[in-house]
């Protein structure tokens, strides 16, 4: 018989755990995208939060103007935003190759200001609701908690994308090229592989991952021009905790940080917005290279 766990009704505890798992799934997908981009471009993509937001707006736009529903948007929104990313890489980011990595961060910070500022001007700072797709409305009572179908779907879809990315990188030929490009781009180029193209594709893919998270988030958080701006800072902390070295590292760190945040909401709500930063500080003291990073 499940009654109160540690003095909290199980509904509350598991409800927050689920929310934490969902946030964790977003952290995982976003930090995965950052890791992919960092691997080939050596750039920390500050515009990641803004591109996540673009994914949500693309969903909204596809539904309103083209009549393409949620399921179509799940495919098309990442493609559209990924194409925007390819454009950004070709026109702007490419010109920074070979100079200090900090300029990449500054450039993408400027891009984030431009994108978010434009959307705030056009759509206002308040959120626009997006309906949950019909097939996923409602939920099921598991006995110890109520599970809304959509929330379960978000977790499953995010994990599926993470596993697919892992497969792409670790088990396919293009993944082998991408990993080689991370290790030693000049040598790879010498073997006749088109590294600039690979770099562009990596940026497009990382950005598409952010947009995918944006589509998943649209029915949960509402579509808001600033939905990514605070999120990206938390994701940076997640990246510092996990290190950008491995795909599994990004996924595991993302999920566990989401869960820790969810649990904190139950036991000490005031600290829930800062707990990930505290974890980051502790990790920096104990293991400066990050949980999955290689010591320099």
């Amino acid at each position: 018989m499940l009654t109160d766990l540690l003095g909290f009704p199980p509904q509350v505890l598991f409800g927050q755990l689920l929310l934490g798992l969902i946030n964790g799934a977003f952290y995982a997908v976003l930090s995965l995208g950052l890791a992919v981009i960092f691997g080939l471009l050596n750039i920390v993509n500050f515009a990641h939060g803004a591109l996540y937001m673009l994914g949500a707006f693309a969903t909204l736009g596809l539904t309103q103007y083209l009549g393409i529903g949620y399921w179509g948007a799940l495919i098309f929104a990442p493609l559209i935003v990924g194409a925007i990313g390819v454009g950004l890489e070709r026109v702007l980011l490419r010109r920074l190759s070979g100079i200090d990595h900090l300029y990449g961060l500054l450039l993408t910070f400027g891009l984030a200001l431009v994108i978010e500022g434009t959307f705030v001007k056009l759509f206002g700072a308040s959120g626009i609701p997006y309906p949950t797709p019909e097939a996923l409305q409602g939920g099921v009572n598991l006995g110890f908690m109520f599970l809304p179908f959509y929330r379960g779907w978000v977790v499953v879809a995010s994990l599926a994308v993470c596993v697919a990315t892992w497969y792409l990188f670790e088990r396919t030929k293009i993944g082998a090229y991408l990993r080689a490009g991370t290790e030693n781009p000049r040598l790879l180029q010498a073997f006749g592989v088109n590294v600039p193209l690979l770099t562009t594709l990596a940026y497009g893919y990382g950005v598409a991952l952010a947009a995918f998270a944006g589509v998943l988030a649209a029915p949960i958080t509402q579509v808001n021009p600033l939905m990514g701006s605070n999120l990206i800072i938390v994701v940076f902390a997640v990246v510092v905790i996990g290190g950008m070295g491995s795909i599994m590292g990004a996924v595991v760190t993302g999920l566990s940080m989401g869960i820790i945040e969810g649990l904190t909401k139950v036991f000490w709500p005031e600290a829930s917005s800062t707990v990930i930063f505290v974890v980051m500080a502790i990790v920096l003291v104990l293991r400066p290279a990050g949980l999955f990073g290689k010591p320099a």
């Binding site: 900090l102 800072i233 510092v240 800062t274 505290v278 980051m280």
Partner: peptide, 21 residues
């Protein structure tokens, strides 16, 4: 004290996160 434990890009992310906290 925390941030100088890492270099470059990580330094920027750590200071940003601590300031957000």
């Amino acid at each position: 004290t925390l941030a100088i434990r890492r270099q470059g890009i990580y330094f920027a992310m750590i200071t940003l996160a601590m300031a957000q906290m």
